[in-house]
Design a protein around this nucleic acid. Structure first.
Lengths: 182, 182
DNA sequence: TGCCAAACGGAGAGTGTCTCCGTATAGTTC
DNA sequence: GAACTATACGGAGACACTCTCCGTTTGGCA
């Protein structure tokens, strides 16, 4: 890639990250990103053919934090319930870090054609590792995709309604108790 | 209201209901509704100043079914768990009856300025009646708004991903067990 | 320095929401 | 049943947004 192209690409992602985080996916227009990055719309679309692909690039670095969080929860010297709650809370917090991200990623779960498919796989795999780690403490038959959807749904609601952390925590506690073996 | 205006209004709502149900909120354009109802865009917007207000009118009749469903669940001669599951399943099914409705209504929970505020109140009240009816079988301190958000979130996920009923049921079972007293 | 593939950027096509305002008509009054 | 007026109609178009085409510019190499 030519140096000017690389510079422009970096600046676009940087501007887009700030805008998406502040205003949410829908409220940011591509023109706005182009103007902010001081490029023409044509240039923006050369780098990112769709708005989704731009969003995907913005979320790139961020997906790696998920695996770190599941490791952290599993390494805690605590009860299975506390480990589970720690993970769910971290997970929901990461999902709501960007406004609108939770709903978008959760909607893409199980859709291989989605531009966020890679991110979804990361999430589902993290939940699978959690299930393997917590082993028999969980309700028999619980699946990684179920946890992904349950927490993704909660995160989306929390994000949309801008719920305070304690409201999210109490809902996650309900989900966690439901996930633990009876 | 003049007779021709009433006729047009009725036809608009009827056409919009069919379109929204089939294609979901976002995929239906106002022009499409206007053409289907054989009126001009101006006429459509005279009756419904925003797309949301049209959606609200479409959902009008449908909100009444919620109270009937909670009565049905509470009158069942069954365990608290079965009553709860019956209600949650009905509730989620009603939310997903119109594509996109669950996410939209759940997002409006707790926002008095939303065009769907009246529908939200109906849902939260129904859950409150459930809590009162099930009494001590539920986890102490559980609130109607929490149940509304939990199930609304699940319904939104189910709706978005077009999940089969059994997938929804297994997630609702987890939520239900979390809601029941430990 | 000159070349040219790569990149740029703006005009504009296509689609959507919503408005303005001249025209048509329902319903009343004589 | 004719005239009148408040009410409603409907289409042209303003405005915003995503995305494309293509003439122009420029980075990097020989």
């Amino acid at each position: 890639m030519r140096a000017d192209a690389q510079r422009n690409r970096d600046r676009i992602v940087e501007v887009a990250r700030a805008l998406f985080r502040a205003k949410g996916f829908d409220a940011v227009s591509m023109d706005e990103v182009a103007k902010g990055a001081e490029v023409g719309p044509g240039t923006l679309y050369r780098h990112f053919p769709t708005k989704e692909s731009l969003y995907d690039a913005v979320l790139e670095a961020w997906a790696e934090k998920v695996n770190a969080a599941v490791d952290r929860a599993l390494s805690l010297d605590a009860s299975a319930r506390e480990q589970l709650l720690t993970w769910l809370t971290d997970y929901a917090a990461m999902l709501t870090e960007h406004k609108g991200a939770a709903a978008r990623i959760t909607a893409a779960l199980g859709d291989p054609g989605s531009p966020f498919a890679a991110k979804c796989t990361t999430y589902v795999n993290a939940n699978q590792r959690l299930i393997d780690g917590l082993d028999s403490a969980l309700r028999p038959g619980v699946e990684a995709m179920q946890i992904s959807r349950l927490v993704g749904g909660m995160a989306a609601v929390a994000d949309n309604s801008e719920l305070p952390a304690e409201s999210v925590a109490s809902m996650l506690a309900i989900v966690a108790d439901g996930l633990l073996a009876p």
